[in-house]
Design a binder for these strands. Structure first.
Lengths: 337, 337
DNA sequence: CGAGGGGATATGACCGAGCACATCTTGCGG
DNA sequence: CCGCAAGATGTGCTCGGTCATATCCCCTCG
């Protein structure tokens, strides 16, 4: 071996190379003002000459700030979580933070708690929990001491910051749109039990119907998957008097459309369908889907804002940020004839 | 203040509490065999009593292993990258590693290089780069010294490990399937320029046509989005003699289906359509999409396997792992009449 | 011309773990 | 009953930065 285990250069190496003390190198690295221009230049030259790269682990040890944020999420394959995390990551990096992710495949309070502990051990400065199940929300009740946290759709409790989308509002927009078009009532294909979104959308839908004095049909339970929507769609097609369906997400709406099309039911001529999410595909469904648009990106950005505010403050400061959904009318809904 | 800035307990605190040395605590934490059972019990009791949690940052400093892997990816909102990352994260966590993610919104070699540097600075033990653009692949040519890395679909170079899906094979499956059904030739809606997948699928499609001695039509260029597929679909509908279309991904296939349906062209009776990816939605398109299935999950797992092997070995060991796609026949293709 | 002051730089302790090595026990064979 | 090896535990240094503080330098002003 000609190269005797070439160790990566450290601050002391740079200091020697530049003929200064390690402290001066540190000052240069941290843009400290009190460094003479020529010294700075010399140090910088030494840094590039040696290919020095600062060791953030050592830095984190002494500053007690890792500049890393943890994210706990459920099924990052779904469009909603994926988009939210994307927003989180972008915002975090802009603010100079790393993002460490744990994605759970099954949700319960223990799993979430473990994930948070795991991240806390790693020394994250804060966590955002994207796990909108009621059971997961319980894990937020016992956070490691002093760990800043923010939940997405997670909880109604007042001692954890929350960023959420106004699910009820979205569901009302969808339901009212259908009622305004003259439909007697609106059927609902709901999300899986235990999800906050499921409940919010269910409530909003029910409230809108009740406000209008309409009958509230029994909702059909789904699980967000297109297959569940498909099954629900088959049931709906077999029922009498169904003219309007509000699916709790776009994937299920797709399944509904598919089932109706198979049964020869024309959308929107015979049945109108509305979704929720506005995934990129829904504009190109057959027919293009009328849906509720959620701006996940904004949610992700808000999470980071809230979290960083909490971190900078150095103590808990609970906020609740509600993002309003919008409504996108396309061709899957029409006035009743 | 009654609580005088309650510092988190450290190893020394546990040691004192248990009446042993910090080293013994360390041994207990690391499951070192040579610790008497009762000592272990005493230490463990002290740990829970104090709510002690090991500081992995300090540990990383001395072991020079952060047990964190970096992932650089492009647009984690897309189904492919999202699924791959999911697989990566699951496999990494099972192996006891954290995953730190950087998702780029625009790709060029500089961005990728910066992202890798950023992660290297943070002390990751290795990186996987999910950026299947030719330009991004160039960034892999100049990795920080000694940083284990693996690319997904990234490069043909022999000095970086690669895990990829056999794109050509997938494209050939799709094209041959259509030819076998009696179509004279197959049109292609390709992905955006510069992507490895685009090229692989293009090549496979062309090769399959040439092998069969068929004419090779000019491919239509898309950008993976359903909108691009829609535009391509409108063009195809306006052309004569088009009976079979191979779209480079399912989203574009959806756009094609939509355009054809608008123009009153029936699928598969008049035109057959094949996609690529097998996203969860494609089974419920109208009609359900025949497509090439990629197992992203497996790709993610392989990435971690290869990477960990490299890390454990302590030196470079280049591997190339090819995952074979499969073919899913549904209702968007039919024999020509 | 010397005191005073602020900017530039150096020195040493410290963060919280692991590692190498030293030391003290214990058990077992002769 | 001793010697010795293996097992159990402790000691002090180290990782690579930052922080608090000390020191030095040079300039200004009375």
């Amino acid at each position: 071996m000609t190269t005797p285990k070439r160790r990566l250069p450290v601050m002391a190496d740079v200091a020697k190379e530049a003929g200064v003390s390690h402290q001066t190198v540190s000052r240069v690295l941290n843009d400290h003002p009190n460094v003479r221009a020529d010294t700075r230049a010399r140090v910088e030259a030494a840094i590039t000459r040696l290919g020095y790269r600062r060791n953030l682990v050592a830095r984190a040890l002494v500053t007690k700030r890792s500049r890393t944020l943890g994210v706990v999420s459920f099924d990052t394959t779904l469009y909603g979580p994926a988009s939210t995390i994307y927003g989180i990551e972008q915002a975090a990096r802009t603010a100079g933070y790393f993002v460490s992710i744990v994605s759970l495949k099954s949700i319960d309070a223990d799993n979430v708690r473990d994930a948070i502990d795991y991240l806390a051990e790693q020394g994250v400065d804060g966590v955002v929990v994207v796990a909108p199940q009621r059971s997961a929300a319980r894990a937020l009740e016992s956070l490691p001491a002093g760990l800043p946290a923010v939940a997405v759709e997670g909880t109604h409790r007042a001692d954890v910051s929350v960023v959420c989308i106004d699910q009820m509002e979205g569901a009302k927009l969808a339901t009212r749109h259908l009622l305004d078009q003259g439909h007697d009532t609106v059927w609902h294909v709901s999300g899986p039990h235990d999800w906050m979104e499921t409940e919010g959308r269910l409530e909003g839908w029910r409230a809108a119907l009740e406000e209008a004095g309409r009958p509230v049909p029994e909702p059909l339970a789904g699980d967000w998957s297109p297959r569940a929507g498909y099954e629900a769609g088959k049931s709906l097609a077999a029922m009498d008097g169904v003219t309007a369906v509000f699916a709790a997400n776009d994937q299920m709406a797709l399944g509904v459309l598919r089932a109706l099309s198979e049964k020869g039911v024309r959308v929107p001529q015979q049945i109108s369908v509305v979704g929720f999410d506005d995934i990129p595909e829904s504009e190109f469904f057959s027919p293009p889907l009328t849906t509720v648009r959620q701006d996940f990106d904004v949610v992700g950005r808000h999470c980071i804002e809230v979290l960083l505010r909490q971190i900078d403050l150095g103590h808990a400061a609970y906020e609740r940020l509600v993002v309003r959904p919008s409504f996108v009318v396309r061709s899957s809904t029409a006035p009743i004839r």
